[in-house]
């Protein structure tokens, strides 16, 4: 074989390669192509074995000729390989289609929901924590002393009428009630801490009231207590206002009007801008633009005394309102009993 013959063979191999490379559109075909031409038993490798038949002085030139073809084939294949791989993957992804929404219900596991009242309670706690208050708790079964007497509500006081209580059937001289308000925690906090006291007291309370759209027998209140030197009615009014804007929004207002609670003097009811009509007047607020939210006032000297504090040294204010009621307002709940029914159909919508 001389160089020209070799060149002819190489040209044929090159030409055959060029023909076959066009059809090599899969990685498998490329691998086959590579093996057929530049593999160990490939057409190019066979030529190297025939180098011996060429005159010695021409062998280097012959080797270069073969090398050039081998390099071209290898470079072509190496260049082609990633392109085909990418094209092949693109095809796989492009054709891999499903319906992501077609999941059988038994495979679908939702997260749960927090109870609406818990959610409100946490929101309220956070707001008061932000205002520098701590969060305190107390027992749900209370002595009459903590629930009434210490709060300046002696037996047969007319104010007990509105808070008809459940009495527990226990031995012992003192009566135990399910607390009718969170206020007994005030007494416990004042007994166990030295002023300054800035605390809110959320919790479940009970009233002997027929359950209906607006009442449940057990419900939740949050109560606030501030006792320090020089605390004034002006502080109370300002605190109520700060809370109102923090909870309901900056364009909401609070107002106080005279009321009566045995444990505070002076006492006030506080109202906030109607959340439905934003103060314009609607059915919910009886066209007043205001909704009654809770009670508040300056802690009665008798209450401070009952808790062991000197009313000459300390003064304070307290306020309280219903957590469930706020929940009702926020969620526009028509019938409060839904909150105690644990109806998953409802709870899933929370």
């Amino acid at each position: 074989m001389d160089l020209s013959q070799l060149s002819t063979v190489l040209a044929e191999i090159s030409s055959e390669f060029d023909q076959r490379v066009v059809g090599a559109t899969s990685l498998v075909a490329i691998d086959q192509l590579k093996s057929d031409f530049v593999g160990k038993k490939g057409k190019v490798a066979l030529l190297y074995r025939q180098l011996g038949q060429i005159e010695a002085s021409l062998r280097p030139s012959a080797g270069e000729l073969i090398n050039a073809v081998r390099d071209r084939i290898e470079a072509t294949v190496d260049d082609l390989y990633p392109k085909v791989r990418q094209a092949e993957r693109a095809t796989i992804i492009a054709t891999d289609v499903n319906d992501p929404t077609a999941i059988p219900r038994r495979l679908y596991r939702s997260s749960g929901r927090i109870h609406p009242v818990s959610r409100t309670r946490i929101e309220l706690e956070d707001i008061f924590v932000g205002m520098g208050f701590s969060v305190e708790e107390g027992p749900e079964a209370e002595s009459e002393w903590y629930n009434f007497e210490a709060l300046n509500i002696p037996k047969f006081h007319p104010a007990r009428d509105g808070q008809d209580s459940f009495y527990l059937d226990l031995e012992g001289e003192d009566q135990v009630v399910l607390r009718t308000h969170t206020s007994p925690v005030q007494i416990r906090v004042m007994q166990s801490q030295t002023p300054p006291i800035y605390a809110v007291m959320p919790g479940r309370v009970y009233r002997r009231d027929t359950a209906d759209a607006r009442h449940t027998i057990g419900f939740h209140q949050i109560e606030g207590l501030v006792v320090d030197r020089g605390i004034t009615f002006g502080h109370l009014a300002s605190t109520i206002e700060t809370f109102t804007k923090a909870y309901f929004g900056p364009d909401m207002n609070a107002r106080l009007r005279p009321a009566y609670f045995p444990f505070t003097e002076p006492s006030a009811e506080f109202e906030v801008t109607c959340t439905i009509c934003r103060g314009q007047g609607c059915r919910t607020c009886s066209n007043t633009g205001w909704i009654e939210l809770g009670g508040c006032g300056m802690v009665h000297p008798n209450v401070l005394r009952a808790a062991g504090l000197d009313p000459e040294t300390y003064s304070g204010f307290a306020f309280g309102f219903g957590i469930d009621r706020l929940t009702q307002m926020r969620d526009e709940i028509a019938d409060m009993r839904i909150l105690t029914e644990n109806d998953l159909r409802y709870m899933k919508t929370i």
């Binding site: 997260s111 749960g112 459940f166 399910l178 909150l339 899933k348």
Partner: peptide
């Protein structure tokens, strides 16, 4: 934690 695990918070009667 429980809510994230798929549980719904209930309020059942104390009485």
């Amino acid at each position: 934690y429980m809510v994230a695990r798929g549980f719904y918070e209930a309020w059942t009667s104390t009485l």
